Computed example of a mutant assay.
Amino acid sequence: MFKENKGIILTGLIIGIISVLLVHFGNPGNMGVCIACFLRDMAGAFGLHSAETVQYLRPEIIGIVLGAFLMGVLSKEFSPRGGSSPFIRFILGFIILVGALMFLGCPTRLIFRLAGGDLNAILGLVGYAVGIIIGIFFLNKGFSLKRSYKVTKVEGYSFPVLNICLIILLVAVPSILLFSSEGPGSKHAPLMFSLVLGGIVGVLCQKTRLCTAGGIRDLIMFKDTYLFSGFIAIFIGALALNLVFGTFNLGFVNQPIAHTDGLWNFLGMVVVGWGSILLGGCPLRQLILSGEGNGDSMITVMGMVAGAAFAHNFKLASSPKGPTTNGMIAVAICLVLLCVISFMAIEIKAKVKMKGDVSV
Rank of each mutant, 00 (worst) to 15 (best):
C106V: 12
I91T: 11
I91A: 15
R89D: 08
C165F: 06
Q55A: 15
A45F: 02
A68I: 05
L123F: 10
L57N: 04
I61M: 03
G124W: 06
I35T: 11
G127N: 00
L170S: 07
I136K: 04
L170D: 02
E60D: 02
L123P: 04
N163S: 06
F159L: 12
A51H: 07
P86D: 10
P160N: 00
M42W: 03
E155T: 10
A68C: 02
S75V: 00
F112R: 00
G135W: 14
I35N: 07
F38N: 11
L162I: 11
G127R: 04
F69S: 05
G105D: 05
I95W: 06
G142F: 09
M71V: 12
P160G: 13
F138S: 15
T53P: 04
F94S: 10
G116I: 10
V151E: 03
R147I: 00
S144R: 03
K141A: 08
C37S: 14
I133K: 14
C165M: 07
E60V: 00
C37L: 15
G93Y: 01
L104I: 08
V73A: 05
V33Y: 07
F112D: 07
I88V: 09
F69C: 08
F90C: 01
L110H: 05
T152V: 11
T152K: 14
G127S: 13
R58W: 06
P107A: 02
L125E: 15
N30G: 14
S148P: 03
I61D: 02
I167W: 13
T53I: 06
M71H: 02
K150G: 10
K76A: 13
F69T: 14
V161G: 05
L74M: 05
K141S: 07
G82N: 05
G127L: 01
P80K: 04
I132P: 13
G67E: 11
R58L: 01
R113Y: 15
S144G: 06
I136Q: 01
K150T: 10
L101C: 07
F90W: 02
R89I: 09
Y56W: 03
G67I: 10
G156N: 05
K153I: 04
L74S: 01
I88W: 08
V54F: 10
A121Y: 01
M71S: 06
E52S: 00
N163M: 14
A51M: 06
K76R: 05
T53C: 08
C165Q: 02
F143L: 07
I64P: 03
R147C: 11
I122C: 04
G72F: 08
L139F: 10
F46A: 05
G156I: 08
L139N: 06
I132K: 12
F78E: 14
E52L: 14
V65G: 09
I96T: 01
G83L: 07
G117Q: 06
L114N: 12
G142V: 15
L145W: 00
F137C: 04
S79Q: 04
G93P: 02
F103W: 09
I96A: 12
G105H: 05
A45L: 00
F137D: 03
L166T: 02
L70T: 13
G82I: 14
N120F: 12
F90D: 12
